[in-house]
Design a protein around this nucleic acid. Structure first.
Lengths: 209, 209
DNA sequence: AGGTCAATGGTGGTCTGACCACCAAAAAAG
DNA sequence: CTTTTTTGGTGGTCAGACCACCATTGACCT
């Protein structure tokens, strides 16, 4: 048979994946209810819940009591939180993390300088002007974070971008705070980017742990 | 307070983490049984199971029927595995995957040529000799795969190595078969490695999808 | 005494049924 | 037409019951 040895909740995860594909469900869409899945898949509700809770912890779905289960836009927050707290205990692992993140940043930037388009430059410019005329520190930090993310995104490789996000979150959970650029550095960075000077962009972005 | 609003199974995950820290449990050690956790934490067994199944899907623990639940060595990023199987459906995603893998290989090799030690060279030499005198194709492929893994491992960064493993697995699940070096190429690669010629090593390893 | 094998208790795996809290849409009241 | 109440569906949790599996025990035979 198709895997009697496979645990039911893992099978259910696969089935859910199939349902998503067949019905072409997008982020935000509602999944069948737990009880409906129980009937459709001929399994117990507890098994369905084990599958759903797992996917929830991974950040792939979101459950709202009294409403239902929904597909989340792909960002693996929860997972990072949990993994980090479980895994990042020994020093070597942390060191590897920092090195890897630094490398990923370099990779992203190298692609970014090749692929950056005029409209990207323009968007970053808008962001910088917005940063300069914003007052509250909280808001400024928010904008700078968006600036940094936008720079990384220029690599135009979603997987690589996601890796950066994950690694950043790990670092965050380790250091309890993130390292942001100063607003002046954002302008410098943009200049280097316009000139295709990847080296200096990398140097600046590498400060952003 | 400690989160009455927080879902029970998330609370349980935190408690489990506490138990691991307090009892100083290491990889391979056994966790309390589901029923014992039920008693100790004053929650239902199903909630305990939802927590454990989630951690299992994350690859943090391993459950063996009839034996118990055990802490897994921190291989980490099962994240990519599950996420990717959900996400990797459109063409762009696959393209990103290939590009990312190619980049990660390059990164690993660049670190590897810096960090390779004489005993590593010796080990790879032993592998090659073993490959040359092995007859069955199946066994040869096994050895070549080990050779390739060993080369990547030379980067001495476990996280980066794991990323490569994950990305390779996806490629595998996409293309249904893996691309291995020929036995002659293994020798060439080792020569380039000895000479610190990262460029040629990268070129060879990049064939291994 | 040594080895073999069946009984036993503990473990995870699964299903069922029963509540509860919550939410949204339908129905009733104004 | 608006407001309020009811109602049905949803996830959240618990308790109990089996089953399958494993390791240990201990009785049994040689």
């Amino acid at each position: 048979m198709s895997g009697t040895s496979e645990k039911v909740y893992v099978e259910i995860i696969k089935k859910i994946k199939s349902i998503i594909e067949e019905d072409d469900l997008q982020a935000g869409d509602k999944l069948p209810s737990e009880r409906e899945l129980t009937d459709r898949l001929h399994v117990g509700r507890s098994s369905v819940r084990e599958a759903l809770r797992s996917l929830e912890l991974l950040g792939l779905i979101e459950t709202r009591r009294g409403e239902g289960t929904f597909i989340k836009p792909a960002t693996g927050h929860r997972l990072v939180e949990v993994l980090a707290s479980f895994i990042l205990h020994d020093q070597k692992a942390r060191q590897d993390l920092l090195e890897t993140k630094s490398i990923i940043i370099r990779d992203c930037i190298e692609l970014a300088v090749q692929r950056v388009r005029p409209e990207d430059i323009e968007y970053l410019n808008v962001l910088i002007r917005e940063i300069e005329r914003t007052e509250h520190d909280r808001d400024v930090q928010q904008l700078i974070l968006r600036f940094q993310e936008s720079v990384i995104k220029l690599c135009n490789n979603h997987l690589l971008y996601r890796l950066w996000v994950e690694l950043s979150d790990y670092g965050l959970s380790v250091h309890q705070h993130s390292f942001l650029l100063h607003s002046g550095e954002c302008s410098q960075l943009l200049e280097h980017l316009k000139n295709g000077d990847s080296k200096n962009v990398i140097q600046l972005m590498s400060q952003t742990m």
